[in-house]
Simulated assay, not measured.
Amino acid sequence: MDVSIIIVNYRTPQLIINCLKSVYQHTTNLQFEVIVVDNDPENGGQNLVQAEFPGVRWINMEQNVGFGIANNRGMELATGKYLLLLNADTLLVDPVIETFYDRMESRPDIIAAGAMQYYADHTPIPYHSSFNAIHKTMYLVPPGALFTRLLDRLFPEPQYQDPNECDWLVGAFIFLRSNGFAQTGGFDENFFMYGEDVEWCKRLGQLGKIYYFKDCKFLHLENNNPFRRTDISWINRFGTQMQVSNLLWVRKQFGPFTFLFLMLHYLSMIPVIYIWKIVLNIRMGKKPFGELRQQGLYTKKVMVMTRYFWKILLNKRYLFKILPSENIDLQARL
């Protein structure tokens, strides 16, 4: 088998059907298998997908275990020389899988590679490709050249001879050698959603180079999910689940002191953002304690982070999935 394609399903059978139609349309010169891991089998997605694609191998999980664990179960059963982790809400627009296969065959130094994400209207999706790039976004500093230069100095971008080389790949499309999974064990199963692709790429990068083939693309429809961030602002740039996962990643990759510093930063910003907004309201002639919605959302999110503080600090084995009552983003949406 040339390639094993692993897709995680969570109430998205029609998206998977559309995705697989694009896969079969644009992949005609390789032997490939499709493995779908279903995080919500009671939803009935298996019958819908296998009615269209009876050859799909289907794995039912007992509960929603998240992105990383589900992909690991699929990779455990894969027989392909290469593995492709593909989001359900993606579409291929050309023979990108065949291109990746040929390039990886000619480049044994590359352990994993990704393609560029585009929206449904074929405009590019902004992305980060280095650990320091995502790390910088986690600090809440005033916008402006001074603080930008400070963060750039503290977290410099890595320098590669080849501009296509990078630190990490977006989990929506990761093409890797099967031994990459065998030697690393796949995603860290403490992650429920978000951050697991960053952490895994750190370990994959110890086996070989990580690449973006920037002339290759796929469409990412970015299907809504209950953990997606809402009401985005300067102080609420991350969703609650995303930020808990980011903190877990920071603890694992940069150690306990960086994690402690980041938590102290978030806690200390609570009075700062309230005072700043109150002063701004007074200067603009508004009610001093009006329009504090963003400050309230931020405070609630930080309080959720503190509930996982000790488990993250002590690097406990635990599935870091927030509770429904802790999903501030979903509550703000309702």
Rank of each mutant, 00 (worst) to 15 (best):
I16L: 04
V56N: 11
L86M: 06
G255A: 11
T27C: 08
M1C: 00
N164V: 02
F67D: 00
D329A: 07
L221M: 11
Y194C: 12
E165F: 02
S130A: 14
S129H: 14
W200Q: 06
K316F: 04
F238R: 06
P124R: 08
P226Y: 11
L314G: 06
F213K: 00
D167W: 10
K252E: 10
I7Q: 10
S130Q: 13
F53N: 08
S233C: 05
T148H: 13
E199T: 00
P41Q: 04
I125S: 03
Y274C: 08
V37A: 09
A112D: 02
G171F: 04
L323V: 00
Y194H: 02
I111C: 01
D197C: 02
T90R: 03
Y212L: 06
M104P: 11
Y10H: 11
D329Q: 07
F218N: 03
P143R: 11
L92C: 00
N64D: 15
L146A: 10
F218R: 06
V170S: 11
F173T: 05
C166N: 02
G144E: 11
D329P: 06
L262R: 14
T123E: 12
H265R: 11
L20T: 09
Y119P: 01
M138V: 07
Y274E: 03
G68Y: 00
R229W: 01
K21D: 10
V3P: 03
I328W: 03
G255K: 11
F257E: 15
R251N: 13
L207F: 09
N224L: 09
N225C: 09
M284A: 14
L30G: 03
L247Y: 08
I282R: 14
A120V: 09
D329T: 05
L292G: 07
